[in-house]
Write a protein that binds this DNA or RNA. Structure first.
Length: 118
DNA sequence: AGATTGACTAACC
DNA sequence: AGGTTAGCCAATC
């Protein structure tokens, strides 16, 4: 099934590509960066994942810092384990709760009211 | 064009 | 702490 990539999807992929290695972001932050307001729309675009290995979608986790899903699978399986292993390979550490360490939580350069950067 | 889903989230019980 | 409900936005049927 070849779907024409929508502008929204391209935004998602572009945003994920901006995530540095060893860092992860949440669907929520990602959605906010895209001014979407809904993280589910992000997952909807990623679940199709037309650019599977090209887009580091494994760096996108849930707001609960859980793994989330990968390649269309949400339950614990070989696919989710692969995602976790990939994050470990990036240097990301997991807590005993099976979640990502907050230190690896990367936030997008959102210029809302915080102009301490620019 | 309308209804349903979905790699989510927050709130509620 | 865990299960359910509602809300959200875009894609798909």
């Amino acid at each position: 099934m070849d779907r024409p990539p929508t502008a929204f999807e391209q935004r998602v992929y572009a945003a994920i590509s901006q995530i540095p290695a060893g860092c992860v972001t949440t669907y929520r932050e990602l959605a906010r960066y895209l001014d979407c307001g809904s993280a589910q729309a992000i997952g909807q675009a990623l679940k199709r994942n037309p650019y599977a290995p090209e887009v580091p979608c494994h760096r996108v986790v849930k707001a609960d810092m859980g793994l989330g899903g990968y390649h269309g699978e949400t339950e614990e399986g070989p696919t989710l384990q692969r995602k976790r292993q990939r994050l470990l390979d990036e240097g990301i550490e997991f807590t005993s709760a099976g979640k990502i360490a907050a230190s690896h939580h990367y936030t997008f350069p959102i210029s809302k009211h915080d102009d301490t950067q620019a």
